[in-house]
């Protein structure tokens, strides 16, 4: 490579930083949706680079399902303190009470769907006109068609047929009052790009991404942690296994991967070698129907 060429991670980083600065330039009240997972941690890192040496310019917003891993919550709080960002946490539990919503039933009750209500209420409460999210187009087929600037109507809904064309690196974030834009700065990154970038930039992650001992039950080939939220039934066998998490979602709908990988290098090697996708391996709630993600997005999910 010549002296004037960027490698692929530098090019992806350049694009993401450009997007972050467009958000700062175009919106009045943006927020960064923070989950405590590796993608939103990478977003925070990119934003720090985009606005250095100024303060982190957006609040971090966490829509807490109440089913989160304690390690991820502790990490969230520590990170917000470290970068001196405002942290806004809103609980799905409160929305369920206030709005008298019905909790999903079953052994692995997912509050993913209910998160949408809390998110929309939070957007209204703070009048956010832009929510930055860590979704990637390689995650899932419906996401592959999402724009980087994705306009949502006042019900938070996404219409795949009415998306604005996105040309060159020119982003149109113009909206009417009441609408908002979801912006996805790492749209063009793959899971492996994220991991390689985390290694290159020495970004810290919550401990659950690395191998540790955990009590799990095997459910339909997936390992689910025994926790306050998942109680084993009589027919389950609880075993202690060395596991790590490949994604960090709810304890009720994120499966662990059996692994001995305790360093970034080892984790990356395992991900390169794996023959199963991130969502397929770790998300229990995506298997319901083939169009599950498309339906959730149309209704205002991230």
């Amino acid at each position: 490579m010549s002296n004037y060429q960027l490698d692929y991670l530098e090019q992806l980083e350049a694009e993401s930083i450009h997007i972050f600065r467009e958000v700062a330039g175009q919106f009045e009240k943006p927020a960064l949706l923070f989950s405590g997972g590796k993608d939103s941690i990478t977003l925070v890192h990119l934003a720090m680079k985009a606005f250095a040496p100024a303060q982190f310019p957006f609040p971090l917003v966490h829509i807490d399902t109440g089913h989160n891993f304690p390690e991820a919550l502790n990490f969230r709080d520590a990170l917000a303190r470290k970068i001196k960002a405002t942290l806004i946490v809103r609980e799905v539990e409160d929305t369920i009470q206030q709005r008298n919503l019905t909790e999903p039933k079953g052994k692995f009750p997912s509050r993913n769907w209910l998160q949408t209500y809390t998110l929309l209420d939070t957007i209204e409460e703070f009048q956010f006109d832009c929510c930055i999210g860590g979704a990637r187009r390689d995650e899932e087929k419906a996401r592959a068609k999402e724009r980087i600037f994705s306009v949502r109507d006042e019900f938070g809904q996404w219409d795949p047929k009415l998306q604005r064309p996105e040309l060159w690196n020119c982003f149109n974030g113009k909206i009417h009052k009441g609408e908002n834009v979801r912006v996805f700065p790492i749209s063009n990154w793959t899971e492996l790009d994220i991991w390689n970038y985390i290694r290159k930039e020495k970004i810290e992650l919550p401990s659950i991404y690395f191998a540790h001992d955990r009590d799990v039950i095997a459910n339909d080939g997936q390992l689910v942690a025994v926790s306050h939220f998942i109680k084993p039934s009589a027919s389950d066998t609880v075993v202690t296994k060395k596991v790590r998490y490949r994604t960090v979602g709810d304890m009720t709908c994120t499966a662990a991967v059996e692994s001995n990988a305790s360093t970034l290098d080892e984790v990356i090697n395992e991900i390169i070698a794996t023959r199963i996708s991130e969502r397929g391996e770790t998300r229990i709630d995506d298997r319901v129907t083939e169009a599950a993600m498309e339906d959730r997005k149309k209704n205002g999910y991230f």
Binding site: Y8, R137, D138, K141, A142, A144, K145, P160, K161, Q163, S187, N188, T190, L192, D193, E290, A291, E294
Partner: peptide
């Protein structure tokens, strides 16, 4: 590559979709 339900049902592609792959030499979008 036909991502959305409408496309799967009609068997056509109706919007730009982005795909990612890489080899040892290059990353492709």
């Amino acid at each position: 590559t036909d991502g959305l339900r409408a496309e799967r049902e009609q068997g056509i592609t109706i919007d730009v979709a982005y795909r990612y792959f890489s080899t040892l030499k290059r990353k492709f979008i």
